[in-house]
Structures are given as C-alpha cells and as structure tokens.
Write a protein that binds this DNA or RNA. Sequence first.
DNA 1: GCAAAAGTGTTCACATTACACCCATGG
DNA 2: CCATGGGTGTAATGTGAACACTTTTGC
Lengths: 241, 241
Amino acid sequence: MSPYQEQLNINTSATSVHNYFKTAISVDCVIFGFEDNVIKVLLIKCDHPDFKGKWSLLGDLVRPDEDIDTACYRILNERTGLENVFLEQVHTFGAVSRHPAGRVITTAYYSLVNAGHYQLKTLANGLHWHPVHEIATLAFDHKNILDTCYHTLQKKIQEEPIVFNLLENKFSLRELQNLYEAILGVKLDRRNFRKKLFSAGLLVDTEEMESDVPHRPGKLYTFDQQKYDKLRRKYIGGFDL
Amino acid sequence: MSPYQEQLNINTSATSVHNYFKTAISVDCVIFGFEDNVIKVLLIKCDHPDFKGKWSLLGDLVRPDEDIDTACYRILNERTGLENVFLEQVHTFGAVSRHPAGRVITTAYYSLVNAGHYQLKTLANGLHWHPVHEIATLAFDHKNILDTCYHTLQKKIQEEPIVFNLLENKFSLRELQNLYEAILGVKLDRRNFRKKLFSAGLLVDTEEMESDVPHRPGKLYTFDQQKYDKLRRKYIGGFDL
DNA sequence: GCAAAAGTGTTCACATTACACCCATGG
DNA sequence: CCATGGGTGTAATGTGAACACTTTTGC
C-alpha cells in the first residue's frame, strides 16, 4: 500500500485537507477579440526569468476565498474594465512541471469581448492585442492552452451563436461573415451565409446602414439575445418558464 | 489595491508559490458502464459525517508529484484494475464551499468501461454499479458533477464513436442500438440506425453470430479502431503520418 | 406454427451547396 | 462611369426521417 493510502479518498473520510498539499491553483484567461478582420488575444509581458521576453496569457492565483469562476472574472475585469462578458471554462492543465515556480495547476477559460469598443484599463506590463495566427510560442504551456481554447472556440461557434460578443452591438452581415471566416479559417458563400443566418430568425434589422464605406453601404443588424435564450430554453429544458 | 495584489500575476513574476494557498486539488471520476440495458456509474459509500449514508463518486486528492490525468488513471486502476480505458476530462468545480473539509477544487473526468467483462478489484466501501437514472442525490456536489459528465457523454457519442468502450469486443447491432438509446433516452429507427452505422464503414463483420438468444441470432461485429484513427487524423491534421 | 427479433429499400421533406446577375454608393 | 461590395433566387445534391414485409431461430 502506498504511503498516501491513509490519506486517500477525501470524499469518504473526514481527513482535514488543509496544509496537505503545496499545490497552487491558478486561472488563465484567453481573451479573444476581433480587430482588423483578424482574431486577436490579450497578452502580457512575462517576466518570469525562465521565459524572459516571452508573452503570456492573463492569469493569476485563485484566492482562498473565491470561486474559480469568480477569480477569472476578476482578472478580466482588472485588465479590461469589462463586466458581463462571455466567459467559459475550457480545460484544466495539471502536469507536474508545467510551472517552474512550483506545482501550479491552472484552469483555462476563454472570453469573447468587443476589442474595438472600449479602451484597455491599463497598458502596464505590455498588455496588448496580439493576432492569434502570429503567435508561435508563449511562456509556460500557454501556447498549448491558447490552442486548446481556440479549438474550443472554433467548435463552439458552429453550435451556438456566441460570436456576437466579439462585435459591436450593431454590425453588418459582411462583418459577421468576416468574423466567422477569420475564426474558422475558411471562405464562405455570401448568399448561403445570409440565408442561413436569416433563417435562424435571430437577427433584427435596425433600419440603419453602414456609413463611411467606399461602396454601397450594408444594413446593420443586432442579435436578438432574448429570443435566442427562449428558443434555447425550449430545446434544453422542455418547458417555457 | 487589494492585499493580494503584490502576489498576483504568477505568470509574470518569480514569486514562489509554495505554501501560498491552503487549497487542495482532487479528481473525481465518473465511471460509466452498461449493464442490463441500463447506464450505470460506479459509486462508493461516503463516510464524511456531513453526508452519512450518501453515495459519492470515486475521487482522491492529487499527489504533489503526479499529473492530474495520472491521478485519475490511478484511482480508476486502484478500484477496477482496468488499464487503457477511455478517460476524458470534463470540467473543474471550484466553488469555495463545495467541500466541508476545506477548500478543495476538483477536476471531474468521465470514463467508459465494459462493466460486464471483468470483476471489480474490491467491493470495499460499498463500491458498486448504480443505475444513473436512479440517482437522486449524492454527497458533496457530486450529483452536479455526474449530471455534467452525463450531459457531456450524451453530446460526445453523437460526435465520436466512443460507445464501443462500453461494450464487449464483439457485439450485435441490437446491443449497440440499445446502448445509444439508453444514453440518449430516445428510441431510434432500427433500419436507419443500421444504415448510418454501416455507412461509416467502421464495423467489421466477425462472421460470428449471437448464441443463447430466444429468437433469430444476429451477426456480431467489432469496431475498427485503427481505421477510425486514420480517418480522424486525415480530418484533423490534414496529413497522413 | 408461433413468438420475437434480424435483416432489407424506398420515398419524402429538408438542408446544404453551387452558382450569376443587377443595385447602390463613393470617388 | 467605374470600382466595390450589397443584395437576391434557383437548381442539384446530400442527409435524415418515416415506414412494412420477409427471414431465421428457439420453444
């Protein structure tokens, strides 16, 4: 029997778990934005000596008195000033040597924000938007985390209409299509794209038009989140509250 | 500025993280099996005083020197004796008060095993297969964890052919269909089901038949995992290694 | 010969794809 | 008037759903 055996099965014994492991837990936040028709992610300078000059994701240790979801919101808010943003847990990375400072298990989240709409709260530590496709390496295992989150994003936008979080409140169909194409890395047929989007019945014509474009302006739409939430509830829960 | 501020940003400073938080990390393993045409899950008696008489999932603290994936394999192996089983991370539950013994953040995995094929290594602590649909409550937040994993399973089997992990090596189409129906909670059309499965081209006729059935015996098939892995690589990676 | 499940094909509705022309605006 | 992208419809193809009868075995 292993030396740990007597302390095993935390769920079946009253063993105190305080002071048992010297393992820290952190969250890392992959914050996606869409700017200049390119998907970007918020990066910060990493000044850990082992990764001098590398960029890293936004992350922090989880405080003893906060939920991990809350921790992630806190980080995001501290850096961007944004609230009520799309934020979703993706995966937990727990390899023993993933962090040179010690055992740090990290839970990765991704977030979708409107990059153009607001100013970053602070540009300290080199905080900036970095094109996802121009990132070859990152500090720690952050490239791996980024790739995992990006893949999750690609899959998710084909299942649920979450891309609107990356756009202004009002947007043209062209912007929306550019966004899908940027994330998925494919070209889409414009007519079929329109048909599909409209048939979902979740776009509302604002009666406004684009301006300042060097060609025929397109209509501007908003996403009907309420209607989507209702539809969704019907599908998932079965009844209408 | 918060009192934690100076210790923030583990990814950007050389702060030692040892001894910083009194937070433990555990893994909980939702081990699914298929028996008597019903989906079951391995449960164990919970003797934490706050949940006397309740059942709980199999879980354990992660050791300081093991990856969290490894920890999960270890638990599974200790209890079932199985190796090389399907095991996948689902979600990390990190609410502050989810565990009465202290701050325990847990990462949930689900596993698919062939329940009939082998004997449980030990029946100590009331280890047993419990029908998923007869579980109303569990200790801690384990009901929530179970529901999350079950939902993930339902979604996943519609995307990837992982259900074979729950069956014997050789199986009839009827067994396979029963399994899908049990997990998804729907009735499927037998003819369409066959068409779909065969069109995927991943079932191999073993030239054997069922025996001991009180009706016309069906053919037995195996799942062509190698062929699937190749197809998958083509789709995902683009090239054939 | 009867009960019970295996095995098999066709039709229909719907969704996805491919594809080409005219229109509105800015310059 | 020209360049640029906005806006629209139709035909072909593929996919999923519905559906009934004959066959094989155990009893």
